[in-house]
Amino acid sequence: MSTQQIIFLVLSAVALLSAMGVILSKNPVTSVLCLILTFFTIAGHYVMLNAQFLAVVHIIVYAGAIMVLFLFVIMLMNLNADIEPQKRNWLKYAGAISGGTLLVILVAALRDASMPTLQPGATDIGLIGNLGKTLFNKYVVPFEVSSVLFLSAMVGAVVIGKKED
């Protein structure tokens, strides 16, 4: 086994375990920490794919900003295991059924999907210069449209925030 394979396996194992930790842990703060760990392992995968820019941006945006806000909210909510309300039974059944359906759909979709073979050599698309050129030439319209989407989200947040006055 080459070094890369070992790193890949370790990263994937940690990613899966911490992702399980997110949904299995009782304490929401621990969940958030597991999620942060998952983000780190995913960033590690990006580095393995020679996409350092994506890796770092992933950490800055998700681990550095969004998760801080998550933690921020959870800290202020005072969630204790003993005061957490019991979920109703029908909610559990509904969750199990919808989750099972999703699984079936995913399996059905993936069964027919043909995976393009991976290129053996490293690509440079994840490096910052190439990524920028691709984004601003080939994908400039979707890129700008997504920025409009963000703007509308921001405007929406401001509108909701201002409603109280």
Binding site: V56, V57, I59, I60, A63, G64, V68, I128
Partner: peptide
């Protein structure tokens, strides 16, 4: 590394 400043940003945000 060719993303030195971004690395610093990532670490600082942590």
């Amino acid at each position: 590394i060719n993303i030195g400043i971004l690395y610093i940003f990532g670490v600082v945000s942590l």
